[in-house]
Design a binder for these strands. Structure first.
Lengths: 215, 215, 215, 215
DNA sequence: GATGAATGAGCATTCATTCAT
DNA sequence: GATGAATGAATGCTCATTCAT
């Protein structure tokens, strides 16, 4: 928390850039395997094949690595997956829209979120917990999440003929939140109920909520 | 984690029962104020006006207190609030139903969950995080949550004329999950979007999902 | 520096009081032997025959022990030595005064300061350095030193017939400062010049400054 | 402490000389600002706009820089100031002496020391502390201080008609020590007593001690 | 000459848990 | 039953110094 006397440096040489990368990779692996709280700087450095001090050359503390990982996580998983998937729907597969099959659109959205959750479920869970525990992480997440919601919002706005929501921004939030949470539960916990049934109901709920009756 | 050599005892004398109660109260206060991870046995005992050793007379570790608190939490907040509220709807206010105003029913459900979240938001957030971090806590939560979902499921089943879901169990899960998550976000984070708009959309989504067209 | 979550506790049981005492003694010994900066908590605890944690039960950090030692140091050495010596001059040996031998008074003062410096020279040196390096220690020292200077000031005021200073408070400061410093140099460093000559000149300076011509 | 395997080199090229100079300046600034102990090689190098390794090209460790700074400090501040001031008194202003105003001489001495202390008080304080903590620094200081005292001693010897000390070498030591210490206190600490009063008494003490009655 | 990446021993501090009283 | 003293492993972080480029 305290501002360190030694600020973490940014590597300029190739070797430094590689070391920083190794640390992030090692941290990502450890956070997934044993959780953020159980991993420590010594261990992360060792896993990266570096000394403890090297860790602190590039990061002031464990949390800074987590933040970096979260940003990368959103970039690599949610954001990219989303952008690509939605572009596909939009541009590469105009046929979907042509058929006015809004239900397929909903299915795609849920599937995409599910894929994003599946890339590294354990790490995802750790991040979700940290969002609850640390306001700084919460803020980072809010920023990153905002981009995803913006995609959704734009998407909902684009298909006005299919979708009947009034407040498309609030709807995007709602859809993201609800879907994310339900998918998360299905993904992590052997729910009291069969996951397939839950996802199926989720799709049903989304359709009833989002799509025009006459579709 | 490891089972202690000395098992925590159950108090039999009045004094012992009071000490145990004091510890739980102190822990609840501290978990709310500074979070589960930042609180420690010494501090909890001090807050309870007891010695460190006394803490370990009644609990083998901090987690055991948390589990006790979670059970009580569900009893005192979610479960009770739910049961009472829904009974009111059902029995004490048959007029609501008489009007076939399913929308009011939905509104009530959301309001009830919101109330439950408002009783001790900080503690609630800590518990949510622990559910993600600790499988044992997750299991405890699953059990307790199951009761709430059972209420919802029964409720949905009772108003078949109002409600059009096929799989009322899955629907109860879905409704609980989605509402809980959205409310939680609205409650804790200054979302990118106004909370009122989000709750309003949530109600709209639930209505469209749950209620028959002809209501 | 930061306020600890765990505040250092005050021992209530006899055993605890003894442990705290042992830590102070061990610290005093180590600070003398190898200096404040070179000693560390682990070492101090070990020397006291206790675990590291026990050190932190009674002190939040090394500096707190130093402060305690400084206070005790002033109590045990300077203050007491001074009070006793000066009382002796004053009450038990009125003959000195009767002879109007102010020179003996000055000699006593210097001798007393020299004795104070001799009780634990190494520790004294460490403390002097810390006064220069740490404002908090400087303040503690200022307070304690103030008492000694008050004694001197009172003494100077009492023998107005012998002593010709106008501003006895400033004079007390001056005398203390100058004598303390010179003695310190003589005590610690093999000065470029023989210590005896320096002390002799110090006495001469003090006499010329303090005593009436006609003494 | 340990002699390094690689000896620090002496710069021969212009560029090297400049680098060395930059390091000394950066160190001086940092030692003043945050103290000798809190400054470190990395920081010093960064401040000098150089790489860490460059620091170790010219100095084997931090202490070597301090020693260099102390020598320069004495050269630039105390020694020069002294020499110049006293020469002024002696050669350029024979009128002062002609008036047999020894009091002015004393005033000049004190003023000169005060000026020396004022050039970089924080650095001065750090050096004083290091003298107490490190025998090697103490020895360096002894040597440099010796020159100042030699000036004083010579000065005292030159005005035998004004000054009545027997042992002018011891007197020079004494005067330097006492004045230095008192001035230091006035300069650094808001003494319990007003600085002006103390300096005034200091001058009075010096006059009574040094000057002949019939002046 | 200069760079900055890497090292790793070293130290301060925390806290879950035990146990003698 | 209650107390609070004691433990010591664990961990975050620093920084003087080396060395490959």
């Amino acid at each position: 928390m305290t501002q360190s006397k030694y600020k973490a440096r940014s590597p300029v040489q190739q070797r430094g850039i590689e070391s920083r990368e190794k640390i992030i990779e090692a941290a990502r692996a450890l956070f997934s395997e044993k959780g953020y709280h159980s991993a420590n700087a010594l261990e992360i450095a060792a896993r990266a094949g570096l000394a403890t001090g090297t860790f602190y050359s590039y990061f002031n503390n464990k949390k800074e690595v987590l933040i970096e990982i979260i940003r990368t996580f959103y970039k690599e998983t949610v954001e990219d997956v989303f952008a690509v998937s939605l572009l596909e729907i939009n541009d590469a597969r105009p046929s979907i829209i042509g058929k006015t099959e809004g239900r397929k659109l909903v299915h795609y959205m849920i599937e995409t979120l599910f894929t994003a959750h599946s890339l590294n479920p354990e790490l995802h869970r750790e991040i979700l917990a940290m969002i609850l525990l640390d306001p700084e992480i919460a803020e980072i997440n809010r920023q990153e999440e905002g981009k995803v919601i913006a995609y959704l919002s734009a998407l909902l706005g684009r298909y006005k003929d299919l979708i009947r929501v009034n407040d498309s921004e609030a709807a995007a939030h709602l859809v993201y939140r609800a879907a994310d949470e339900v998918i998360h539960r299905v993904r992590f916990f052997d729910a009291q109920i069969d996951g397939t049934r839950l996802l199926s109901e989720l799709e049903e709920m989304m359709c009833r909520y989002l799509l025009r009756e006459d579709e």
